[in-house]
Amino acid sequence: MSLALDELVRWWQQFVASLTGDVPMVEMESFVADLVATYGDAAALDAVDWYDDLRDVAGVPGRFRAQMADPAPRDQAAAVARWAAGPLFGAQPDPDQALKHLSGATQRLVLQPARQTIAANVDRDPSDARWARVPTGATTCAFCRLLASRGAVYHSEEDAGGLANSYHSACDCVATPIWPGEQEPYDVDALLEEYNAARDQAGGDPKAILAQMRKDLGIN
């Protein structure tokens, strides 16, 4: 992932330096789409290897080989580029803000096929694995902490009701398969205590609970 962002930053610096008037959106859309396709394929391949390795380490019986998901469609990447370019068109163009938008959205799109690879293979695998939203970064937002607090409860994408596939820009969550008898690789109880404390204060409305968690934990 860092390689994709490094390449994006290098290109962005040259792109911004070359601007003399109108923003060449076709060039920007094409670069982002190519970047997302290249690194998205690499991310999906890594996810396949990771899934197979996890399955072997867990000693899951039966033969199964994971399959790669496709990278994000080019039109989706182009749409992200157009959205991220917004700050370039203000009365006072802000290239730094545009790059911030583009970096977060590019990260999400590059990781999208990896996450879809894991979720789809958990669904395909006859070994009855479930999966959890596992936080991996230094600071995880309230929304993702709420989902992670549920532990390995998602048996399929459909069972997750879509929530488990809601990844925001710069999200650090990884959909991780958990086989019967295995424990989640993070402290589910601690996250559940955070959620329950916020629920006790805010009541049952999910938006109010998230707002309370942000207040309690001092996070976004």
Rank of each mutant, 00 (worst) to 15 (best):
C141K: 06
E184G: 04
D52E: 14
Y186P: 06
A78L: 04
L111K: 12
G218T: 08
G59F: 11
E184C: 12
L54F: 01
G62C: 03
V60I: 15
D187L: 03
T106S: 09
G181W: 10
L45Q: 14
S103N: 08
P87K: 12
L35H: 04
H155R: 15
R108D: 08
A79L: 09
K100Y: 13
T117R: 02
A175G: 09
H168R: 08
Q112N: 10
P135D: 06
D123Y: 02
V16F: 03
G21N: 12
V174S: 07
Y167A: 06
T176N: 02
V26A: 15
A208K: 15
G204E: 15
D22Y: 08
F143R: 12
T139G: 00
V36K: 06
D216M: 08
Q116E: 11
P113C: 03
R145C: 02
S2A: 15
A69T: 09
D128Q: 12
H101Q: 14
A43R: 13
A138P: 00
R145N: 02
L217K: 11
A72Y: 06
G181Y: 09
E27M: 13
G151S: 00
N165R: 15
A79V: 00
D22Q: 14
R214H: 07
I209T: 02
A98V: 01
L45E: 13
A33L: 03
A142Q: 05
D125F: 00
V16K: 03
L191K: 01
L147Y: 01
R130T: 12
G161D: 06
S18Y: 08
P61I: 12
L5Y: 07
L5V: 14
G204A: 08
A77R: 07
R199M: 10
N220P: 05
L19T: 12
G203Q: 05
F64W: 08
A142L: 12
I178H: 01
L99S: 02
G90W: 11
E7N: 13
Q116W: 00
C171Q: 11
P71I: 09
D41P: 00
W12N: 13
D172Y: 03
R55H: 03
D216L: 05
R65I: 03
P73I: 13
A175Y: 01
L192P: 00
D187V: 04
V174N: 01
H101P: 02
R74I: 14
A66M: 04
D49W: 08
N196P: 00
D200A: 15
M213K: 05
D123T: 10
G137M: 05
A81T: 05
V134S: 02
V23N: 12
Y154A: 06
L99G: 01
R199W: 06
K215L: 10
T106I: 11
W179V: 02
M25P: 02
T117G: 03
D22L: 13
A211K: 14
D205F: 08
C144H: 07
K215E: 14
G161S: 04
A211D: 13
P93R: 13
A17G: 07
W12T: 10
W179Y: 15
